[in-house]
Amino acid sequence: MKRVIYRAFWDYEKEEKWLNTMAEKGWGLVRYTWCRYVFEESAKGEYIYRIELLKKRPSHPESKDYLHFLEEAGITCITTYISWVYLRKKASEGGFNLYSDAESRMEHYKRVNRIWIIFGFIEGLIGLANILLGIMNGQADYQSRLLNVGSGLAALVIAVCFAKFSLSLFRKINRLKSERMIRE
């Protein structure tokens, strides 16, 4: 039996948690496309899921080599989205964590954070440009100027959201950094 759920996540760790809760209930993710999750019935708690952002697109030879390496360790890539991969492993084969030290965990957080920073920056620029255009463009009619300011503000709100996600990742990275000062 299949089940389709539409859901949006900003935080991939929360998403991962949700996928694992679903897996515990007997629903294993088999496909993901933009906010659309397709689950298939599986034994309860059969799989453990992990989400990872690769350095390069999944089709890149480096990524293929990595995914092949995971495959050998019993980890299957079940679906990809841009550079995100959704991985799963049979729970009966033991625990499943991709990263076992602070260094590699930090590196992955930084990779994810780069996306938020870039998107946040672009949204912020779009927002400011629209607002300025709305205010300064005296020749345009009132309505279109209002529209400019409005959409500019909306873009700014999105930029602030991205900055918030980025900040929470920075905090996680810093916590790992200070932990690493005293232990590996």
Partner: peptide
């Protein structure tokens, strides 16, 4: 318990 990602790196 080495993580596969950590080990690969």
């Amino acid at each position: 318990d080495l993580g596969a990602g950590t080990l690969y790196g």
